[in-house]
Amino acid sequence: MHPIVKLLVQRIALGLLLLLAVSAVIFLGVEALPGDTAQAILGQSATPQALENLRAQLGLSDPPLTRYFNWLGGILTGDLGKALTNGADIAASIKPRLANTLFLAGCAAVIAVPLAILLGLVAARYAGKWPDKVISGITLSTISLPEFVVGYIVMYIFGVKMGWFSPTAMTFPGMSFWDRLHAVALPVIVLVLVVLAHMMRMTRAAILNVMQSAYIETAELKGVTPMNIIWKHALPNAIAPVVAVVMLNLAYLVVGVVVVEVVFSYNALGQYLVDHVTKRDLPVVQAVGLIFAGVYILLNMLADVIGIIANPRLRHPK
């Protein structure tokens, strides 16, 4: 077997194992909370008999291990259980919200990732000179402001003053792609501003690190233009650290944007999770927690895989 295939298989197996471990942690964490679902439904004043009956009905009186495997088996078959608060099927509720989350994250990523890398390259090319300082200054100030502040500023300028976009990002089923795009424009702008700095800084640092290498001097002595040196000689050797940071930011775009969702009243997974945390709706919290963990593990695994593939020593062994 080609050594790189072996490495990749190992890495993916490790990711799956990690996901399994996380599912156990999520289950145990919820299990360790005082009270249980039956208590949460019936409230403090429930009689012991009523609790007993409900537990039997929900399968809560089974041993924890059995319940864990039941839960896990359900997830694997697409059955995430029912929400306690309204009895709705969790999978059905998550589906459109997950789609909304991924749509928003995807739009932000499509703009932010290339833009951040480009800005990073330009900053590295003019390191210490004014373009570098301007880029660093702007991106650092947008990351320093809290998301809701950026959100309200953007909303005020583009939504209220200019009136280009709707200040709230309302979506509904049956909306066309372009309408949907128009609706999420403002949150996308906010998210781009928030994630730009991190990726830009990492690209700049990784490139500058590679620029110390002897082969960069070789390229310089070959008369290669500065931008070509960065693009052709430095970037291919800086991919692994850049991809790692890009993936962390993509994960953030999926799991960490609840504040932005709230600011723009965007109906997505973050809000759904927070709503149900406040209602102590544990099956929902478990399900969404697992999805978020899965996204993190998947993206980081992808970063590792790309890092491995980008390394010529692994791709072309002696």
């Binding site: 290498s213 082969y215 001097e217 070789t218 002595l221 000689h233 291919p236 050797n237």
Partner: peptide
């Protein structure tokens, strides 16, 4: 002007070729 001359009129061979080649190309 230097860029046009480097690699065209004058070229360079370094002590450590191992470090002077781009490992990714």
């Amino acid at each position: 002007d230097l860029r046009h001359l480097r690699g065209r009129e004058v070229t360079y061979v370094s002590q450590s070729a191992a470090a002077s080649f781009n490992p990714a190309k």
